[in-house]
Write a protein that binds this DNA or RNA. Structure first.
Length: 204
DNA sequence: CTGATGATGTTCT
DNA sequence: GAACATCATCAGA
């Protein structure tokens, strides 16, 4: 069952935590991709200099003003794109960065998207490396800002979130976010969540 | 396994 | 003109 609007229009930090264990589904024509979300980060509207929308919205971030459930994809370092999910009700600004997935379906296609070669007796290392980072999962799924920016996960026919695996409290680890040391306010906030001992988590 | 380095171009000042 | 929510690759151990 797809998650509806009510899941996404809650507090950003709760959405970020509750996204763990859920399934990100992408249907591209006849290809279906599925993966369990194993790592997320929350970016919030107050006192968080790491958030792109900290000083108001721009052309890049405008979708964050919409209702929770919309897709925010942006370019980084000139060569990568990262996938985020808008949270909160319209007018409140918050977003969740999806940092890592555990591939469930469409693995052979992901492999081709990532390595540009056919899937044949892959190494374990290559499978882990498919989706264990925020730009990697975008490449594996074949998502892009041009095609998917602004899609609504609550209603889209090609991209949505489903229930996945059941987690208990002790399966969830909370820590500082990655690579935001430039942010004086916010660098030490515990807004990163990941599934304990999952091999696809990007960093310990 | 770890840590260091270079690639690369959009976005915002 | 600087900054940047990253990754692949390489050297060393």
């Amino acid at each position: 069952m797809r998650l509806g609007r009510d899941f996404f229009t809650r507090n950003t930090i709760l959405v970020s935590r509750d996204l763990l264990g859920k399934t990100l589904v992408y249907r591209d024509g006849k290809d279906i991709y599925k993966g369990i979300i194993v790592e997320t980060e929350a970016y919030i509207s107050t006192n968080d200099e790491a958030a792109h929308f900290n000083k108001g919205l721009t052309e890049r971030t405008r979708i964050i003003d919409e209702a929770g459930g919309h897709v925010y994809i942006y370019n980084i370092y000139g060569m990568y794109q990262l996938f985020n999910i808008v949270a909160e009700v319209p007018g409140i600004h918050g977003a969740v960065l999806v940092r890592a997935l555990e591939p469930i379906k469409g693995i052979e296609k992901m492999y081709k998207n990532r390595y540009k070669k056919t899937y044949d007796n892959p190494k374990r290392r290559e499978i882990i490396n498919l989706t264990n980072g925020p730009a990697k999962l975008v490449m594996a799924y074949g998502l892009s800002k041009e095609r998917h920016y602004g899609l609504d996960l609550a209603t889209s026919r090609e991209l949505w979130i489903e229930e996945g695996i059941q987690l208990s409290r002790e399966d969830i680890v909370r820590s500082k976010r990655i690579n935001i040391d430039y942010a004086e306010k916010g660098r030490d906030y515990l807004l990163r969540f990941y599934i304990k001992d999952n091999p696809f988590v990007s960093k310990k």
